[in-house]
Design a protein around this nucleic acid. Sequence first.
DNA 1: TATTCCTGTCCTG
DNA 2: CAGGACAGGAATA
Length: 172
Amino acid sequence: DQTIRFAVGDCSLANVLIAATAKGVCAVLLGDDPDELIDDLVARFPNATLVGADAGFEDTVSKVIAIVESPGHAELPLDVKGTVFQQRVWQALGKIPPGQTATYSEIARAIGSPQSARAVAGACAANPVAVLIPCHRVVRKGGELSGYRWGVDRKRKLLAREAKSAGPTSKA
DNA sequence: TATTCCTGTCCTG
DNA sequence: CAGGACAGGAATA
């Protein structure tokens, strides 16, 4: 059992809920409705004690939003839990540079299970920390966006913004 | 082109 | 415990 502090802010894409334990950020949720985000948080951490933001948490919130608005800006300590497989996937995702994308099969290969592309997708979907673990940078082979936990449209906008901010050096 | 199998998790019966 | 559903992808008929 643990205590989780949380706060809801907003960015250019949507409302953002940031939640953290004493160890680090444990959830970053995207959505249009703050209440909906809180419901999601409760569902993810049914055994945790949720408390509102206290002094000093604003700093974490602003950092997370800064990363959402401008990926690659900084990193925060994370406190995420999952299966070994999921953690391997998330770690692999973290190696994708801002502005670039990888395919599910590439990630699968990177973690040593070349045939587990579908399982990789499942692990991405289970990612509790939007943007900080860049599951939006994973696309289907061929470059198509197939799906995104927080909306394909949001995924597209995130990628478009990253591509722009990382510099349109590709084939220009 | 349409099936079928593979893979890790989660949800339901 | 068994079966089905997924943000995929490759092989086979």
